[in-house]
Design a protein around this nucleic acid. Structure first.
Lengths: 252, 252
DNA sequence: GCTTGACCCTCACGTGACGGGAGGCCGCAG
DNA sequence: CTGCGGCCTCCCGTCACGTGAGGGTCAAGC
């Protein structure tokens, strides 16, 4: 099976220029040429291109790709295995980034200042304990609370009061359900978990079930959020987290 | 809180040169300068840098990032929400890529030729039904079977015969267990699923439990693999897939 | 058998996002 | 007051292509 540059380009989702470039630097030279000088690619070339595309997607420079592909000690199957590993690693990193985004969203919502290392730790290369006075900035957010209300530009003072009232109303009803002794996966607790989700959605950002369960885990893991909920009522954090999970499962 | 270029660079995992560049193009200009002309970044700058880093990681060009960050219609929380969506989308794409790698690995193992669109469909931009005679190349692999044995360079003829014998032996014993009527999650079936995994690991590539269950799903989804196993014994594919899953769970 | 339009070729310069060095101030620990 | 690490501004280099310019090729249709 032979293919022209155009066909290969279209199939692989690259431009013709890219294939020319790969030919120029001898990363992927077509196995032959026609009498008129047209490039002819065969199945083996496509296989090589597939490996190249995956390595590229993983961020490898072309020179390095050429080196590892032309290494005679590595057989083709090993490349696939390697790419599988690299990809799952990459997925893990992106999931951490998702968690970091959720952290940033909740920090906004609760008016908590993030430290620089919290903002960027998912990008690696952070050298811990270089910010000695972390605790200060970490909790300094409560000081900024009143004035920062103005920072969420589109809300007026009365909006904030209504928001606060709704939150407190929800808190009272949630504590009542909790104290009534029903389990966290009861219909009542789940209904209030759902209300919690909709409260966030209405006031801050569209909170999917996926994000919501992410938040629940974060409340348990991060002492600042735990503190926020434990201050309402001891044991509330764990109970809420369980109710959120149960609610998300039941709606799936 | 004020930071110097070096501090910001170290925290955010970028170089000082990058921050200079962002300043040059007015993507991220420090909120102030010292008397000596030193750049001074504050917390708001870091917040902006966090957004920039995420958008960059997602592949946005700097100019576009500047445009969306400076769009007054978009509030900060919306950016986070947007990045959350983009990230989860990206994760989904990478998971498809992982599946495609697993497909390529199994295709190698079973000597099945992949079509160009199968190699590259995860990269998008494929225009279907442009390869009309797909079916021919799809199944053309069986013809190439005998001669392609030589292509897996490091194996000699006797290696292949031993491999084949081991495979057939496993197949006979698996059919026996299946016909004995025990469920697919019985100890016997799971033991043979485990043997299947180790057979792949010994002869082709290191097959983790994760990959193994990925393969099981593929056997059910892709008719070529289904055909391979159904040819051994009808109903084997589904039984094997279930046994593989049960085995993977029990070892976790 | 000749045109026409889609596709191919080789230069060759342009671009985005920085890397890296030169040459020279700044600031604080000893 | 003297290092020495950190900061500054040019400014050229690089990588992976993008984007024409100028020109040959090929199958389809008239």
């Amino acid at each position: 099976m032979a293919y022209t540059v155009g066909q290969v380009a279209k199939a692989a989702g690259v431009t013709v220029r890219t294939l020319h470039h790969y030919d120029e630097i001898s990363l992927l030279s077509p196995s032959g040429r026609t009498a008129a000088g047209y490039r002819r690619y065969d199945d083996a070339d496509l296989e090589r291109l597939q490996l190249i595309r995956y390595y590229r997607e993983l961020g490898f420079p072309l020179e390095e790709i050429a080196a590892i592909l032309d290494d005679p000690r590595v057989d083709p199957a090993a490349h696939l295995r390697r790419q599988h590993e690299l990809l799952t690693g990459r997925i893990g990193k992106l999931q951490e980034m998702v968690a970091a985004i959720e952290l940033a969203m909740e920090a906004r919502r609760m008016n908590i200042n993030l430290t620089p290392e919290e903002r960027f730790e998912v990008f690696g290369d952070v050298d811990p304990d270089q910010y000695a006075d972390e605790a200060e900035r970490r909790w300094g957010g409560s000081e900024a609370y009143r004035e920062s209300n103005r920072r969420v530009a589109r809300y007026g003072k009365d909006d904030w009061l209504r928001n606060k009232a709704e939150n407190e109303d929800w808190g009272r009803r949630f504590v009542a359900v909790m104290d009534s002794g029903v389990p966290a996966d009861s219909a009542e607790a789940m209904a209030l978990a759902e209300e919690h989700r909709q409260l966030i959605s209405r006031w801050f950002y569209d909170c999917s079930y996926e994000i919501h369960t992410g938040l629940a885990d974060m409340y348990l893991a991060d002492e600042r959020f735990t503190a926020h909920y434990e201050a309402i009522h001891p044991g509330l954090t764990a109970y809420l987290a369980e109710a959120i999970h149960a609610n998300a499962i039941s709606r799936a």
